[in-house]
Amino acid sequence: MRGGADRRDWSGLLFVLPFLTAYLIILIYPLLSGMALSFQRVDLFGGGRFVGFDNYARLFADETFVRSVLNTFALALMIVPLLTVIALSLALALNRATRGAAVFRGVFFSSSVLSVTIVTLIWRFVLAPDAGLLGETAQAIGAEPIPFLSHPTWSLWALAITTIWWSVGLPMMLFLAGLQQIPGDVYEAAALDRASRWTTFWRVTLPALRRTLVLVVMLQTAAQLQIFGQAQLLTGGGPGGSTRTMVLFIFESAFARWELGYATAAAEILFLLIVLITLTQYVTTMRASEGEDGR
């Protein structure tokens, strides 16, 4: 009896073995080897030397790294709430079976298919203060152009705006999918109760979208903590390091400065931060939802 159950278990494992093998080689092995590298002083071409926690100690004392952490969090805080609200608003506006809505869904999703190079080029043409669209417009009306790419205060906003425009498509689609899962009779009941549109949104739509909302916020937080291409291509981390993100710091340390051990130590810290933040979000929202379900 027991032997039969064992055979079934093993045969099941065979089905997932190809995936597990690829997962182990592509994800787990690099993860573990990255952890090992972070305890070494090693350049890109090998020949490492064990240095214990020296790389981590250096990182916490490195003003450039600390600033890159703060920049990354600031960007995530600028992008994730705004992106979520905009994506939800677009989904609500376009959740209807008309030809116009279908066209606009395509239009708003289209930015997502562009590469980061194209996206940053487009936004450079818009944001460049001396020759960009906004700069020219400001000069045409006699105003001073906003130095989006050259002032530390504005440059983070330049990255945030670019990222929101680029990333709004997927969350919008997730919200649309979520909206289409809500049964129509719930809205009919709300209408019979003479609920206003705001009350219907707040009491019916939003609670029904809770899981999608959690998913969007978690995915976007994890994605925006890894923001890289926009910072590298639009501002190069400048001016004065004001837009250097953690991944840009990791890239520069590994490939420009050849400090592979140092870079992987920074990558491990980023990995831990992402895991901690997304787990906290998940546990907090799930507890809140369990509490509400209990009521």
Binding site: R124, A128, P129, D130, A131, P145, P147, L149, S150
Partner: peptide, 13 residues
């Protein structure tokens, strides 16, 4: 002097 230009903008200018 200009102060807000990147390389393409400076070349263009």
């Amino acid at each position: 002097s200009t102060r807000n230009q990147d390389t393409p903008a400076a070349i263009g200018s």
